[in-house]
Design a protein around this nucleic acid. Sequence first.
DNA 1: GTATCAATGATAGAGCGAATCCATCTAAAG
DNA 2: CTTTAGATGGATTCGCTCTATCATTGATAC
Lengths: 298, 298
Amino acid sequence: MIERIHLKLVKAVQEHGSLTAAAKELFVTQSALSHTVRKLEDNLGTKIWLREGRNLRLTQAGNYLINIANRVLPLLEHAEDKLKQISHGERGTLRIGMECHPCYQWLLKIVSPFLHSWPDVDVDVKQKFQFGGVGALLDYEIDLLVTPDPFYKAGLSFEPVFDYEQVLVLPKDHTLAKRKYLQAADLRDLTLLTYPVATDRLDIYTQFLNPAGVNPKKHKTSETTEIMLQMVACNRGVAAMPRWLAEEYSQKLPLSVLRLGRAGIAKQIFLGTRTNDGEIQYLDAFVEMARNYKLSSK
Amino acid sequence: MIERIHLKLVKAVQEHGSLTAAAKELFVTQSALSHTVRKLEDNLGTKIWLREGRNLRLTQAGNYLINIANRVLPLLEHAEDKLKQISHGERGTLRIGMECHPCYQWLLKIVSPFLHSWPDVDVDVKQKFQFGGVGALLDYEIDLLVTPDPFYKAGLSFEPVFDYEQVLVLPKDHTLAKRKYLQAADLRDLTLLTYPVATDRLDIYTQFLNPAGVNPKKHKTSETTEIMLQMVACNRGVAAMPRWLAEEYSQKLPLSVLRLGRAGIAKQIFLGTRTNDGEIQYLDAFVEMARNYKLSSK
DNA sequence: GTATCAATGATAGAGCGAATCCATCTAAAG
DNA sequence: CTTTAGATGGATTCGCTCTATCATTGATAC
């Protein structure tokens, strides 16, 4: 009943003093406004203006309408601005899913410059998914998946953005620390520290221990890399993680880093997106920044 | 661009889950909504929903629209409610102008029950007018004028609502207090206390002193009745006011009340309104209540 | 005063465009 | 295979806006 045009009309008359002037402002004829006013007044059952000669004087109802106009119109105009930004991919929330515990450190290095380049885009990071990272991506819970395990599927695209080697971290003075590389059997007498995820998602099991049919003496878990490595430094066990991460910490803690197997375990981080999100500029930009970071860090 | 119907549409789809259900809610066909959605999405340049089979999933833009809808729609609906009340004369602000200082006491006795009967009507009392009370009425500064001096003019109507006698108040033990009535000459040796208005608007001058060519010994003013009568009680002067008001105070203060002249000064309070405000129910109601109060107090 | 002119709002009628409807199609889910 | 939901095309109708004109008012000059 009260439409946007009515609010604009009331406001324009208020600002320009007459129907005729308001008509010019709104790019219609005075006649159109006159008709519109009459219809609105009929609908509301009350005059909006008192006609006094060539003057219009606001009634109480008119005054009330002005108030509404001043509250509603800016809201709508602002909304249109924002929606335009969203449509141009300049604004929104980039929801990132993480399926790779240690990648968090790496992610932070991309997120921070990204937030600077895209001040109108928020970043949200999620780590728990009921139906896995790919499910979350397909269900639009997230817009970007950071994972070491690409799962090619129609509608999704994965791109490797970071190569790294999965290594074992042990205390600096450990007897094994002088070796060139480790063999699976070496872990038989060690306590293994990992992030708290199923063993079939831990590369050290799937690519190293399981093939050799070896189990560590003990398996403990820790949520955080920091604590995990503190424990390693204190001789409470060994941990597997990306080399770049291990080497970062080994500057602060007494740690040694060893290759897993003669050839080492090569890994990649992939970024997964929905293919039909192609027009979201900030998403492309994020992937691009991740790609470039890989290059610059080599 | 974003119209009310769009907000209602988005909200209805949100609440009912599908375009078809929303169409039923909005009393249009599914086809109409489908067309509307397409046009809106084209205009905004962004999808509002992602079509997934027969499901609609809100996009970020859609989510934003829902927020806007939840803020704007209630505002508009509430506004329509209020405007309907205003159009029925059930809501508004009754702006009362006072041209008669002592009438304030009388007015309060009407206003208080009025506010109870009309909980959605506010009352505003003004006492200063650049172009007089009648001017304020004509200029829509006020809706009701309380005055002892009706000024009949096209577009205005005045109705007497209260008869009273203007009397003189003196200290209880004053030598003149035993008289039946006063003559103008009696005031020659007295200090006269009045409200701070021009003497040609004071009945004691226009109807009593001036005709006899008499002036009081001294003339002082006071804004408030209370203070004025305290001064009278303390022998600092005498004051003219309505008999009913004087008698109310003479129960608390040692005061005498005397007629002015043998016949006394008869006065009336009038309520002035604009004739074309006839359809404002609460205005009529107020005048009616004032009329009844006169009767009940006799 | 009064005659005239400019400016504003109201109104009638015509025309056109947009919103809606109906019918039908396509796709997905059970 | 049926049911259900959304998309689409074309016809129709409704209503908005326009043009043209009138009425009223306020200003100005005589």
